[in-house]
Design a binder for these strands. Sequence first.
DNA 1: GAGCCGGTGTCATAAATCAGTCATACTGCT
DNA 2: AGCAGTATGACTGATTTATGACACCGGCTC
Lengths: 230, 230
Amino acid sequence: MAANILLVEDEPGIQELLKFNLTQAGHQVTATGDAEEALKFLKTTLPDVILLDWMLPGMSGIDLCRRLRNDERYQPIPIIMLTARGEERDKVLGLDTGADDYITKPFSPRELVSRIKAVLRRRAPQMTDELVEINGLRLDPISHRVQGRGQALELGPTEFRLLHFFMTHPERVYSRTQLLDQVWGDDVFVEERTVDVHIRRLRLALEPSAHAELIQTVRGSGYRFSADVG
Amino acid sequence: MAANILLVEDEPGIQELLKFNLTQAGHQVTATGDAEEALKFLKTTLPDVILLDWMLPGMSGIDLCRRLRNDERYQPIPIIMLTARGEERDKVLGLDTGADDYITKPFSPRELVSRIKAVLRRRAPQMTDELVEINGLRLDPISHRVQGRGQALELGPTEFRLLHFFMTHPERVYSRTQLLDQVWGDDVFVEERTVDVHIRRLRLALEPSAHAELIQTVRGSGYRFSADVG
DNA sequence: GAGCCGGTGTCATAAATCAGTCATACTGCT
DNA sequence: AGCAGTATGACTGATTTATGACACCGGCTC
């Protein structure tokens, strides 16, 4: 996993506790004490997940959440609300603001970690280190290996990331621009056509185990990874 | 194994019993009777494992555990809770404070010893003194020897630790940074590229028995120890 | 204390791989 | 056929690793 997490929690004790547990779980944590501080941090860095305390001094967590959800830059970042209240009403409210999940205090660190994992899996499956296997094509992020029906396949770094993204987002067309954003990164300036070249390299790499056809061209739209031969 | 163990147990009888058994098992044991004493000891020495009684006079074991878990200095030290209660609720609580394991009284010394071993293996597999053997490559931490198919191999201290780490964490890619943390130590300031050099030295040392290829380069990611030739 | 030595970290350079671009060939569709 | 979108092969600069050399350090010997 190893996600970058932004924690917004005013109570020092809890902040410390959470930071410790999350770090322990292999995450990179930045802790802030209020909404302003959090926003400041967000100006320079985009975390993978935001943990947001419900009650905060100044702008409340729920306000911050709404605000983030209205900014397209932060929109894709999963938000998990931490709340001390257990009322159903509040929970619903929390979700309506655009939070991806909420968790009621007191909670076990274990639970939190697993929720983070769940949220990441939903938003950015390629970030979880889970092994993916489709139609006999297997990609293991941990050992950084790809096998096609048992046979080892060689692919370069970019092809590996590309395949990983595809395998965690199958059956769906992605434009070249989207692929550039997702696989290369938002801040890269590269020709769109470069994607074609890497698609080709990926296909070549998958050729030995006849998995090349899983990468399908959708004329006028982009590419799709699909188990369907059609 | 031969670990340094800090025992925190207020009941003299049990303390003696445990100390005897653990010493018998080859460990170095320091016994303390309460949390304060334990903390004092910890200021000067970092043990490999902490055995913590649940009920203690003054600060309870669980409080001590939480406290230790919030101090990054003690963070990596495995903690095993000793508890007289068997309730599930308590167990969960104990784990949530950051304890690595718990064991319910009464327990057999044998069980305790094996749990210690397990916890050590989990936190830092290369700390257990167990002999490791992969593909005819054998590393014995006790005699500090390495053999490739019976043939003795010469490697320096750093290469030995590096190989030990790799052999206890196979089939997994590690970045240079991770290797520096794990093999050199967190507090060392060394160039990342230095890892390359030691990888090379390790490969050279494994050459005589043709085990060099177990150390694999994963371009753009780091290195991997793998029995797979692929 | 001088000199030797194994062990380490750094660096410069060579070698290996890769990424991005482009020109050109190819394809499917109208 | 004509057009727009893709595939392909080749090329070049850039990045990443491998390698050999070297300087430094602490311990030891004489």
